[in-house]
Design a protein around this nucleic acid. Sequence first.
DNA 1: TTGTACGCGTTATCAA
DNA 2: TTGATAACGCGTACAA
Lengths: 359, 359
Amino acid sequence: MTNKVTVRIKDIAKMAGVSQGTVDRVLHKRGNVSSDALAKVNAVLEKIHYRPNLIARSLGKGKSVRISVLLPYSNSDPYWEEAKMGILQAQENWDHYRVAIEPFFYEHDGESSLESMAMAAINLKSDGIVIAPIYLAQAMTAFNLFQENKIPYILFNTNIVKAKPLSFIGQDLFQSGRLAGQLMSLMNCTESFDAVEFVVLHIGEEFKDSVHLIEKERGFRDYFKKNRKDNPKVISVNIDSNKKSFKKEIEKFIENPRVKGLFVTTSNSLSIVASILSTHDRDDISLIGYDILEKNLKFLKSGVINFLINQNPKRQAQQGISHMVNHLLFHKKIPANELFPLEIIIQENVDSYLSSGIH
Amino acid sequence: MTNKVTVRIKDIAKMAGVSQGTVDRVLHKRGNVSSDALAKVNAVLEKIHYRPNLIARSLGKGKSVRISVLLPYSNSDPYWEEAKMGILQAQENWDHYRVAIEPFFYEHDGESSLESMAMAAINLKSDGIVIAPIYLAQAMTAFNLFQENKIPYILFNTNIVKAKPLSFIGQDLFQSGRLAGQLMSLMNCTESFDAVEFVVLHIGEEFKDSVHLIEKERGFRDYFKKNRKDNPKVISVNIDSNKKSFKKEIEKFIENPRVKGLFVTTSNSLSIVASILSTHDRDDISLIGYDILEKNLKFLKSGVINFLINQNPKRQAQQGISHMVNHLLFHKKIPANELFPLEIIIQENVDSYLSSGIH
DNA sequence: TTGTACGCGTTATCAA
DNA sequence: TTGATAACGCGTACAA
């Protein structure tokens, strides 16, 4: 095959007739190189393909890199708990490369708001930020802070195009909604949808600022509009699961015979809806939601939940951190957009996702 | 948080009042250590949690590791072509860790049979073998050769329990068949299956030795038996797509009005079946097969193929190599079984898999 | 049985 | 503007 001669800086120096120091200065564009020496080194560099040894580099450079990760406070929300696990694993992973990873958990408002956590991360002299910006307004001011301080940032989970981040890691939420539309169609395969209603449920306390839910709904509606000749009615509602009337409101839909499907866009409260649905005799209502969470499993297995779309928060967080390390430490090019696959989970493949750990 | 003081061998030596060499000997159980020194070092090791710096280790040790990968000859088979791409990427990845990765492509028989390629890998003084053993008989003699030469081997794609490998990476093929069964049910959601026939197609030249196809069929049948009250008829056939009668045989099924679904267990010839099916007016026949291959895409998008189950040959190969590196170089524990998720691909999520590269 | 010293490829520092 | 050289943490060879 190809001859695997690893070319080192030392070799380049010899070939160019200069010292290692000079080659290093050329490679890293540090300046202070005579045009004569520059030419000689460049001549060699054009002939051979130099691939720096990243292992040696990370050993050699004494300076350590600090990455802060900002994400919603995870207590009682298993979705963000997963992301948190990803961060902890990443800490172990990158430890030896002299990378320190610091998580910051923010809440919707109050003293640990996104903004104040952003300030905290900046005060910690972070070299890079990885952030899941689920609240639009607060996030924008955070981005401004990062820009003022010239700290690069990578988004995960929720994309905000205006933010102009280094990179975004997540899913195409519009497409995710479309997928839910197709899955809904699969579940009602022979029926015409003209007399049918589907309900999109956004469940949570602070949905007003949440970009991601809206995209999912748009995609869901788009699917029926573009891909079907019949025309189901799509209703969408924002409900707070803590409200007393919550159960009643859900039951209102479940008891409506025209309703044939529920699409819960928020990952956290799906199991509550499932548990309400399971007490009614409505096998003909399909339930679609998000994420392989412990509390969703039994409803998936019993058939109350028909489909889960997996968002893989853990791997999203890890990938965001990976990219930041590659940027900061290895000066690698990183993709502006990394869209994760929309994973479909049903009874017969859920175990294969559980056992495979990382996925 | 925790104080991130990285403990080095040097530090342990100082704490124990011995030299670095002694600590090294204790850590690696090389012997030649007085019980006195051993006790002192162990005392320190129990107090602190030493995590060796793998980066420094791989830089320091001059010896390079050679891993051979054995897989079917990939020409004209995009499935194995994918696996091959994974190997090439792995070569780049591990290059700096002084790992040489050598692929060997075998055919069913002849001079580049699995056995002769296994011999070739052994003659190359491989430190470890990663192998996709799709032909049972030949594989068994290969495993014997590896054992005689004390070369560790990892299986991917096809599991052979008797082989007692270091590790297996792949999918649960029985469960994969069950999944196909559930997907088939989804496509025919209101119908009773009592008068319905499903056809399992094993297409290829040398299916006789192929373990994996049989498992998929078993799972497929199992699903209907265990999960449904009605009782579809499941027919299975082995056909060679090069035979003249191939098209006729397929059409015989397609023209049978009782047939409502085709399940193609082999990844390679699915598109041929799809193309035949597309010329008949049988929208009511569901087609399920394997893998996101270029030639399958248009049939998936046009709805001729309803579901693909993705096996991810590329990542399977990479993971096998990763595990072998971890075993050989870093002496890490590796899982005896790593089952990949059974990924369901349909129209609305296929693009998300294509754009995400690795998956 | 023990300790010392060198090398891996890179970065960074300092003297020339 | 240059070149020489000491780290970085580990493995290993060699000397004591």
